[in-house]
């Protein structure tokens, strides 16, 4: 058991090392992303600020609270961009026959798929996330107790798994249809729009759907209401923040199952 885990970790480590080295080959590309990503997110939060200034509050949320929510969402987004960006490109991997190689290796394909790439550049997504989040924390008076820090870590990692699982499930459509690119853009657009504003902006039906069908609400909205103490939307037993890692694990298991059943349909394409 221990040797098996150690073996898997070492494989993951070598994949990560290779991926980072590959990306450092193009430093200029890195710089251009460095300009781009922060611009996008800072302007996003700035638009919220403008709206709150004109309208006092947004569905009962003040600007610091909105910044906290937005920042929290960006943190798990950043992590998923670093570790799970390959879940956005399953269709390319199906068309190019990338799974051939993985199928030949004596190791679980889903594991290989997960650790296959580390998008080092994704760190740039994290920086504005941290800036906005810490700003929000300072403004809403977030208490940095040990319990809160542990909860925060669980929420951010859980949120990353929810995001990755949803993308894997949608991307796995490519095993059947050969294309899922536009489906992924749709999913990403939906996740962006539904994690940056409070869910309570939307009508009840959409809130329910984003809680029980596509559990996006657990990425940032429910934990944020818990941390800030906003009474909004649903109340679940044992603190809303605790649910995020649980939902993360469940959705990840579901995505594993769907990926595996898709893989059975995989017919190595091309020449």
């Amino acid at each position: 058991m221990v040797t098996a885990i150690r073996y898997h970790v070492s494989v993951a480590y070598f994949f990560a090392k290779l991926a980072v080295q590959r990306q450092l080959e193009y430093p200029l590309f890195l710089v251009s992303w460095f300009l781009m990503i922060p611009l996008q997110y800072i302007s996003g939060v700035w638009v919220l600020k403008l709206m709150v200034e004109q309208f006092q509050a947004l569905a009962g949320w003040t600007f610091p609270q909105l910044a906290f929510l937005y920042g929290l969402g960006l943190l798990s987004h950043g992590l998923s961009v670093i570790f799970f960006i390959q879940t956005w490109h399953i269709d390319n991997m199906v068309i190019r026959g990338d799974f051939d190689r993985m199928l030949l290796r004596p190791m679980n394909v889903f594991f290989q798929f997960v650790v296959n790439y580390v998008n080092f550049i994704g760190i740039i997504d994290l920086i504005p996330g941290f800036l906005i989040f810490f700003y929000g924390c300072a403004q809403v008076g977030f208490e940095w107790t040990l319990v809160n820090v542990l909860k925060l870590a669980a929420v951010v990692i859980g949120g990353m798994f929810i995001r990755a699982s949803i993308c894997t499930i949608m991307g796995s459509a490519a095993f059947w249809t050969k294309r899922s690119g536009s489906l992924i853009s749709l999913t990403l657009a939906t996740m962006e729009r539904t994690t940056m504003y409070p869910l309570s902006v939307y009508p009840k039906v959409i809130q329910l759907a984003l809680t029980f069908i596509l559990p996006i609400g657990f990425i940032s909205f429910y934990p944020a209401t818990d941390f800030i103490g906003q009474e909004d939307g649903f109340t679940l037993p044992v603190g809303l923040a605790i649910w995020t890692p649980i939902v993360g694990i469940v959705t990840f298991a579901v995505s594993h199952f769907i990926f595996q059943s898709g893989l059975k349909r995989y017919e190595s394409a091309g020449s």
Binding site: M51, Q54, L58, R193
Partner: peptide, 11 residues
């Protein structure tokens, strides 16, 4: 949907 609901909430 996202934009219109946002404006509705703001107003």
């Amino acid at each position: 949907l996202a934009t219109v609901f946002l404006w509705k909430a703001a107003y």
